[in-house]
């Protein structure tokens, strides 16, 4: 027998194995990419942090809805209440020197607010009340620089929606409260 002949079969087998290994993609390490969890949709929400109560306060107890006057027709609280009772228990008053209910709430018409001059202000226009003390901020808000706008920057194509003060600030404790941050970068980019 010829000496080159005995290498035929091993060569064929090596080639076939190689072919198999290439087709099955057995060479090299596959790139492992860490799958990041989907971001919770609450972090993508366009809602303001609170309900501005443009239609006045809604009181709900034991499934019944009340409006303010139903109680306050009979109950007249003192000028500076020592303790907040009933439907007001959840209220935390942290509005600086403005610590008196009747600096903002109307004394007789509970469905309305009142400004420092005694003019009745409906809940819908609460900004008119805030501006009596927070002039510079109101000016900025009017100019569209304070507050969180949405919609259009181009006024010819659509309007810029500007939520009112109470949509972000709780009038009883106006400081913007700390919130949960969205997830940190995964660090695999």
């Amino acid at each position: 027998m010829n000496s080159s002949k005995k290498y035929y079969w091993p060569i064929i087998i090596v080639f076939v194995l190689l072919a198999l290994s290439f087709v099955l993609d057995m060479w090299g390490k596959p790139i492992k990419i860490k799958q990041n969890p989907t971001v919770d949709s609450k972090f993508l929400s366009h809602d303001t942090v609170r309900d501005p109560l443009v239609h006045g306060a809604k009181i709900e107890q034991a499934g019944f809805k009340y409006n303010c006057n139903e109680c306050h027709a009979y109950l007249q609280p003192p000028e500076t209440p020592k303790k907040l009772i009933g439907a007001h228990q959840h209220i935390v008053l942290k509005h600086g020197i403005n610590d008196n209910c009747f600096k903002c709430h109307h004394r007789t018409k509970r469905e309305s607010l009142v400004d420092i001059y005694g003019t009745e202000v409906p809940f819908k226009q609460s900004a008119q009340l805030c501006q009596k003390c927070h002039g510079p901020k109101y000016r900025d808000w009017k100019a569209g620089v304070h507050g969180r706008p949405s919609g259009y920057w181009d006024k010819t194509k659509g309007e810029t929606i500007k939520p009112t003060c109470a949509a972000c600030h709780n009038p009883h404790a106006p400081k913007f409260q700390p919130i949960e941050p969205a997830p940190a970068p995964a660090g695999n980019h």
Binding site: N36, V39, F43, L44, F176, I179, P181, A182, A184, P185
Partner: peptide, 26 residues
Amino acid sequence: SRCIGCRRCVHACVDENNQSRSPEVQ
């Protein structure tokens, strides 16, 4: 003075602009 670092902008941007989620591009 107003930014509180809540990173909502980061993720709204990813959502709007079709960035890669894994690996992450922000």
